[in-house]
């Protein structure tokens, strides 16, 4: 995973739940390319028009609340979401994202500093966001060492394949 992520900010609201990110009626799908087609369908039916692969989602608090469905992360990743920035994330969504290598940045004041379409640059290692459109720097929370370590291994699957998490 790269340490610097660049992309356009797409702004969404608060308490975006997993049913909005990925509706339950598609949960039987298992192939990432099929899952990708329904990303954020419950948030905005025009999401696909607003969003391009490589963009960054900027959300209000409690992003990803609701169910434990990993599809919510798979769909965002497969649709090309580069990262999500929000004042807070629901915990299972957070775990799933870290496990699958989707970077999340917790940042309390992000919505005051970013408008839809602004170009953003995230320095993952220190949790800093550069809004290059507005020429301002925004401090987010640095990811815990444990999480950075897992991300640097490419997510939990690589972590285990390399035997880091298995004490035998």
């Amino acid at each position: 995973m790269q340490d610097i992520i660049q992309g356009k900010g797409i702004v969404v609201g608060k308490n975006i739940d997993t049913d909005q990110i990925y509706p339950g009626r598609y949960l039987e799908l298992v192939e990432p390319e099929d899952i990708a087609k329904h990303a954020m369908e419950g948030v905005d039916p025009n999401f696909h028009g607003r969003f391009k692969s490589g963009d960054i989602i900027v959300a209000d608090k409690n992003f990803g609340c609701g169910s434990s469905r990993e599809h919510a992360v798979i769909t965002l990743k497969a649709a090309g979401v580069a990262a999500v920035i929000a004042p807070s994330f629901a915990r299972i969504f957070y775990r799933n994202a870290i496990n699958l290598g989707l970077p999340l940045i917790t940042c309390g004041e992000i919505l005051e500093k970013v408008d839809e379409g602004d170009m953003l640059e995230i320095d993952l290692k220190i949790g800093r966001i550069n809004n290059t459109t507005k020429a301002i720097q925004i401090e987010g929370e640095k990811l815990p060492e444990f999480v950075l370590d897992m991300i640097s291994h490419g997510g939990i699957k690589q972590y285990h394949i390399k035997g880091v998490g298995t004490e035998k």
Binding site: I92, N96, N99, I156
Partner: peptide, 25 residues
Amino acid sequence: TDSHTTTHGAFGAFGTGVGATDLAT
């Protein structure tokens, strides 16, 4: 693999939900 695993706190258990890959680990 279900967020409502918190239910089992009613029995004094530590119940929590995770995603598929956590469960696989």
